[in-house]
Amino acid sequence: MTKKNAALVEVLQTSVEAQIAGRSLWKDARIRFFRNKAAVISLVVLTLVALACAFGPMVLPHSYEDTDWNAMGIGPSFHDWHLFGTDELGRDLLVRTLIGGRISLVIGLLATIASVSVGIVWGATAGFIGGKVDSVMMRVVDMLYAIPYLLIAILMVTIFGRNFSLVVLTISIFSWMDMARVVRGQTLSIKSKEFIEAARAIGVPTWRIIFQHVVPNLLGIVVIYTTVTVPGVILTESVLSFLGLGVQEPMTSWGVLIEDGTNVMAATPWMILFPGAALSITLYCANYIGDGLRDALDPKDR
């Protein structure tokens, strides 16, 4: 009887294990990500915001630059579809928020991708190779820190004129250093782990150790730091725009709209309320998605 039971248990075990066997890391991560309610809701909301920004201005009856002479500085109303109201020049705030969202989201995305990729490669290389290479690479980072980015932004605008890609470039150049430092620090701690030594004993080439063993283990901290970078980048863009170095009127971005709204906060509060809400919702969603991704991609956390 016990023998039979043991055999049965074994058969069951093999069949169960065979089912488990097929899952890859990404499939696993996806399943775990979709179990996280906050992250899924955030993903849905962020997608809606992005879709609205992309297609909303085409659907809505107003344009972001034309003045509605009948409705200047009015609050939110269903009359004539000024759902978010208008600014003091009579431009529809809903359309302007969506148009501004395009700029802010694209800049947030591009500059973050640039900062994350440069930061990871730079930080991981410096931290892993160490010694003189590390010193030189990190002193370069220190030097970049010492340069005031506004000065460079002004210089670049003076030389090349105002355009969108220049804004992305300027922000990217000055936003990867934090990531590089964080990644380097984490790399130093991963470097001393035994599995790195095991890889070296096997004879794995250095670049392969960095990208196969170090970088995947940085993922948690990188994802967290990215969720901090996204808002930082969007806010930097608003500072540049405010100083007249970013996008040019009548083109707008969330940062610009918020700056405009701040000036007239007492008289027309909706002018800061709606762009501010759009920015906050986006940032909240980015944070929750970041949390969800971190948990989903960590195989130890099941």
Binding site: L25, E197, Q212, H213, N217, L219
Partner: peptide, 11 residues
């Protein structure tokens, strides 16, 4: 290696 778990890449 000495520490069996630490010598395997967790990812």
């Amino acid at each position: 290696f000495q520490d069996p778990l630490a010598s395997l890449n967790p990812r």
